[in-house]
Design a protein around this nucleic acid. Sequence first.
DNA 1: CCTTGACCTCAAGTGCGCTTGAACCATGAG
DNA 2: CTCATGGTTCAAGCGCACTTGAGGTCAAGG
Lengths: 130, 130
Amino acid sequence: MRQLGIGELARQVGMRPSALRYYESVGLLPAAERAAGRRVYPAGIVRRIALIKMAQRAGFTLAEIRGLLDADAERGATRQWRALAESKLPELDRFIEQTQILRDAVADCLACGCMNFEKCELLSADGPGS
Amino acid sequence: MRQLGIGELARQVGMRPSALRYYESVGLLPAAERAAGRRVYPAGIVRRIALIKMAQRAGFTLAEIRGLLDADAERGATRQWRALAESKLPELDRFIEQTQILRDAVADCLACGCMNFEKCELLSADGPGS
DNA sequence: CCTTGACCTCAAGTGCGCTTGAACCATGAG
DNA sequence: CTCATGGTTCAAGCGCACTTGAGGTCAAGG
């Protein structure tokens, strides 16, 4: 399996090495193996980072993401992982729904030509409460 | 039309008064009318704030949101608003897609019982690139 | 009259998610 | 051998989105 240096990995995932070191420091990434003092990552780490980035974009904090991923490692934490995942599901649903409303609002607003996002009638249908 | 004090408004939209003052200070909210020195908001402001919160959750910075909403005010900025909105649409689409992948991943992972989010086979189908 | 409470301003502080800087080490090319 | 490249640690700094604190104003109520 292909091995990556921190710079190479950073390039692949579109981050800076400092960010990866930071992730390691807060326990989001496992402490990488060292070759002559340098971090060496298995290619599979890319998936984990992609996952982290997705979750992050979805509004999870790094601490929450660590919670989700740690559950994999800790054998006893399965229950915790279930609980966290289950509690987050409706949140994610709500979030997706809201984002779609926004997306459609922007699209409709462009289409309808009113050029006034705030007052656009098309936005009145849903009523984005709370 | 109903008028709101800052505290009342804050309660309605689930924020603190300080956040609303902050929004005003950065130009996200128009400088509210004052009655005896106090801010008085028209009820319609709730919609604007809801909009701001949605956009924010979708990953827009406050500066970007201000850009979107300012376009309403500035007559000449219609072109800018179109451009910004159009440029953001594919971003929003990509974002929704990614979030749905994450949501489904979490859901499937709960369902499949593998209890290993990171290595779950169900995640291998998509390949969250970039 | 005096207090209470909600509001005001302005400056400074907070937490998150990194980035930057200083000082150092190891490998490879010229 | 020398030096560039790219890595290391650790502490401090930064930008965003607010929050908090100090010190003051105003209107209603006991």
